[in-house]
Amino acid sequence: MTNIVALDSQQHQQHKLREDPLFPHIASAHILPLEVTEFAAAAVSFPIVFVKDSATGQFRACALTGLQPGQNLYWQPSGWQAAYIPLAVRNYPLLAVQPEAQSGDYIIAVDADSPLFNQHSGEVLFAADKGTAYLQQRARSAIALAQSSALTQQFIARLLELELLVARTLTLTPKGAEPYDLTGLYGINEQRLAQLTAEQWLSLRANNGLLAVHAVLMSMSQLPLLVGRLAQ
């Protein structure tokens, strides 16, 4: 479970932030959130899919890292098995939230239950009531991620408008076990993409949407590799 609280120079004066290159917090995550700005880099490592957030029903973009809930096939005790590490994973346990939509102001929050956030080891966050240079650098990257997240939402809204999303069910047949369906995944409908009018096609250019669409399509070639990891 996570326990998101706003970072506070008084309350968290003694706290430190540690980094762990093994990312233990995603050891059993079968999907990892991705932003549209990461698609091109992520596409060489994972299939990029769209799923609905169970709390809001809104679509979000994700790297598919496992073939059933609780399974992360890129995570090993010895280290992360992919070339790319999603931004949200790198930023953890920090995140930037906008208290009022469109205000441009961000609050830096932290998952207070994360062992990375503690009073014993890591980088100092506050000195003389002020954020340290380390915290400022981490906060900047958390804010950059939150800003990309707005672009991702716009991109997904555009895909929905153009009816480019389509449900995809993966039928998996693990060795010596019953076949099962991995449902709730959505991908880009290539057929529909080919039918777009020139005007619709050009409208995707905003915010590098065409690159993102193709990154998602090309990332599908990672699917058999992901399934192959299961057999290893």
Binding site: K52, T56, L165
Partner: peptide, 11 residues
């Protein structure tokens, strides 16, 4: 309350 806040997904 959620429908009022987020709407419902198109698909």
């Amino acid at each position: 309350d959620k429908v009022y806040r987020y709407g419902l997904p198109k698909l």
